[in-house]
């Protein structure tokens, strides 16, 4: 799709990115740590949601294995940035075995390595599992994520077992996170609007028809799955460095569920939706913490209810799927054309 106003769009996009950077620079200096943490989480959740959206929303593969890829990315990158002294300190049960105990890499390389490790695993998993379709695929990928978790719990000489890794250097600041987020977004926009992206959408809409057109659907699905796994690994690596502590328990089905929730809420098959969904859901999840804290209204005291946050959250998912299945954006995408025509015609046209 070529818009007649290509130059204008480029200018506007550059301006918008510039504006975002100015905002981030301002936020970094003026907001408190908690708010910056939320901003960081929005960026990381965007990466995760975009990657799941590529697999599920654009290629139609129902994958529930995101937490597994994140775990791979998180552990690989963390092992590369943990200082040797820290490594010696935290591996109490069994010492870290040789190549991992000395390997070191700069943060960018470490994150990239995490992404590639996840992509490699994605490839290995994809070749057997993608023969399956629909919900069987979901269960099989969920199974793989659980296997990864069990293996990480038991592979003490490498992963430190159930204790997990502590004191991971907190390199993932707002610039790294948003940098990776923009990179992911840019890459996926290019991918989705390319011929490759059209094939993926054809497979999603009707795989049998796509196959009948002579497309090697299996190959395309495997590549799409691996790219999704790559960015999930990136997201996991950034997440590990942001919160500085990881253990196998963290990468349970709940984590996949959160990402799935964002993708569904934003709109399956809409990159814009995934970004908006991440912002909305991340803020909502943080805001919902109030129900778990004690509330005082005048002399009236309400005890916080631990766990209530997830009750409301899962109820929300059910309500979205029951009453607004297409999510916030449906399959629509943001474009400057639609925004401008909306303003110039008083918002009546879409």
């Amino acid at each position: 799709m070529k818009t007649p106003n290509k130059n204008r769009d480029l200018t506007l996009t550059t301006a918008a990115v510039g504006l975002l950077l100015v905002f981030l620079w301002w936020a970094n200096g003026h907001l408190d740590n908690y708010k910056i943490q939320v901003l960081n989480l929005i960026a990381i959740n965007s990466i995760l949601a975009l990657s799941l959206n590529l697999i599920y929303g654009f290629t139609g593969m129902f994958s529930l294995g995101h937490a597994g890829f994140m775990a791979i990315g998180a552990y690989v990158s963390s092992l590369l940035i943990l200082p040797p002294v820290q490594k010696e300190m935290i591996y109490i049960l069994q010492p870290l075995i040789w190549p991992f105990s000395v390997l070191q890499a700069p943060f960018f390389i470490a994150v990239l390595a995490g992404g590639f490790a996840a992509a490699l695993l994605g490839l290995v998993i994809a070749i057997p599992v993608l023969r399956l379709g629909g919900d069987y695929l979901g269960i099989a990928t969920l199974g793989f994520a659980e296997i990864i978790r069990v293996v990480f719990t038991n592979l003490t000489p490498i992963t430190n077992g159930a204790l997990g890794l502590k004191g991971i250097p907190n390199y993932a600041n707002i610039w790294w996170n948003y940098g990776w987020c923009l990179l992911t977004l840019f890459f996926l926009i290019r991918l989705i609007n390319s011929n490759f992206g059209n094939v993926l959408k054809a497979i999603r809409d009707d795989e049998i028809a796509a196959r009948a057109m002579g497309i090697n659907t299996f190959k395309y699905r495997v590549v799409s799955f691996s790219i999704g796994a790559f960015f999930a690994g990136i997201g996991g690596a950034l997440m590990a460095s942001l919160i500085t502590t990881i253990d196998p328990k963290m990468f349970s089905f709940l984590l996949t569920f959160n990402v799935l929730m964002i993708v569904v809420a934003g709109g399956l098959g809409s990159l814009t939706g995934s970004i908006i969904g991440s912002a909305v859901i991340t803020v909502l999840l943080e805001w919902l913490r109030f129900v778990e804290n004690p509330i005082d209204i005048g002399s009236f005291h309400l005890d916080g209810i631990p766990g209530m946050r997830m009750v409301i959250f899962s109820l929300l998912l059910i309500l979205i799927i029951l009453f607004r299945r297409e999510g916030i954006m449906g399959m629509r995408e943001f474009s400057w054309d639609s925004l401008i025509s909306r303003f110039s015609r008083g918002g009546e046209a879409r």
Binding site: F62, G134, F257, P306, G307, L317, I318, L322
Partner: peptide, 28 residues
């Protein structure tokens, strides 16, 4: 039941939502 005519995956997501809802309600 409201999702009988929807794509099958919708009902599956609804099922995941119900599952988390019951578990967390149980926790509360």
């Amino acid at each position: 039941r409201p999702l009988r005519d929807a794509p099958r995956i919708s009902a599956l997501i609804s099922a995941i939502g119900v599952s988390f809802f019951i578990e967390n309600l149980g926790l509360v």
